[in-house]
Design a protein around this nucleic acid. Structure first.
Lengths: 231, 231
DNA sequence: CCTTGCTTGTGAGCACGTGAACAAGCAGCG
DNA sequence: CGCTGCTTGTTCACGTGCTCACAAGCAAGG
């Protein structure tokens, strides 16, 4: 490993970063195939993106393709995994073991892709002490102790919205600097902490918007039924 | 159009549509408060967005504010709900009752926000016939019959990736034209069908990317001896 | 009725992301 | 050894989204 690889010092656009995992997934699908290379066109097809966009995205990682041939699947997989930081496991703690937290704790896709669940925490004394998938749920007050035992990289918030901010603060206090928030509320974090959010109901509402526009004028809303603006 | 209200014929930017549910959520939080109006600044703060962006977004819906005062919360709530198509319930079918599907079926947030779960389907004969939350799981082959009984607006795919495309095709064949895909794979649909996707592992990988860039050399607390200035 | 203070609505400039088009360059073959 | 076909990497033009800044406009108060 005596520095044969290039320095990835370039700043990669956010939109590109969001697509890298898609490429990775597609590459894994063709990893065992007969042909050891893949063209940008085929990779685009598998990932559901434009071919030009694929080439541009990959060029941010470096010139890893061969003109006239394509990209070597194995080599590209390696480079992309390295860029995404997937050469090591990232330990996850799930806060809140309700319906969603329970499902996430059982979800095999996390460990499979390098994100093993290291700990589960909750505030409800009725679930603290019980096991999920071989992991004992501990009380959220023990977060600092847990962080001292295992190194925790990522915190997942699967609590009710009302306590999401408090849980986020506790996670940060315990040294977690990447958070994925499933609670339907805004959580504010200091700038050095990465935060992403997923709101399931919001996704449905967006679908609802476009669905309504589709079936427009089928039974158009009567304008007179609309309440007048307040004074 | 001779009526008083404006036709919502304007094309609302996609980025704006994605933010409307956030505004809606914030408005619901302040709906009972003493002051019946809200300024763009406060709404921006609650939603985690820029104030100018809020005003521009809301202006796409129409001129529903009063200069010098702000927006009437109730009236804005009504208009936004109408625009998002939330004046009616949207019936949801969940395909795949594994870990995730099970959690989604139990998730109260869907019904609460106008997306009642009308049906559950799965292919595994061991779960078909069992109940979740008062809803009996039926076999996926019965989709057409189910669609004939209840009107199904939105389909949620919570199956393994290997069967996601097949399930999507069946949903579309049964008349569903909005789909939310949780399976970690690309699903292709005809242009008249709306599709959104949520991949939990992808979110973690994006966090992983930024986390790695943060601590370029440091995943060990060696730095604690040096005490790097937190920025 | 006029002035003052405050907040909306919008126009303009800028940054970012996208898509097409094309030159650069490699491999294979005659 | 040169030619041909194919695919990458990059440049350019365009559209979309974001931010700033400010005029327009309403309410309240004298």
């Amino acid at each position: 490993m005596a520095d044969g690889t290039k320095r990835p010092a370039r700043k990669i656009p956010e939109a590109t970063v969001a697509r890298l995992p898609l490429y990775l997934r597609s590459l894994l699908e063709v990893a065992g195939d007969a042909t050891p290379t893949i063209s940008s066109e085929r990779l685009a097809e598998l990932s559901g993106v434009n071919a030009a966009k694929v080439r541009k995205d990959l060029s941010y990682l470096g010139s890893y393709g061969t003109r006239g041939v394509g990209y070597d699947v194995e080599y590209l997989l390696f480079q992309m995994s390295r860029e995404l930081g997937l050469t090591k496991d990232w330990h996850v703690v799930i806060a809140g073991v309700g319906n969603l937290g329970h499902a996430l704790a059982n979800y095999a896709g996390f460990s499979d892709r390098g994100f093993p669940v290291a700990a589960l925490v909750d505030a409800d004394p009725r679930v603290v002490g019980t096991d999920i998938n071989g992991i004992t749920i501990r009380h959220i007050d023990e977060l600092d102790a847990i962080a001292a035992e295992h190194h925790i990289d990522i915190g997942i918030i699967a609590t009710p919205a009302s306590v999401a901010q408090d849980v986020a603060d506790r996670l940060i206090a315990a040294g977690v600097s990447s958070i994925l928030n499933f609670a339907p509320t805004i959580v504010t974090v200091p700038p050095e902490v990465s935060l992403r959010k997923v709101d399931l109901a919001v996704e449905l509402q967006i679908l609802s918007f476009y669905q309504q526009r589709k079936g427009t004028d089928a039974h158009a809303p009567v304008a007179s039924a609309v309440v007048p603006p307040p004074r």
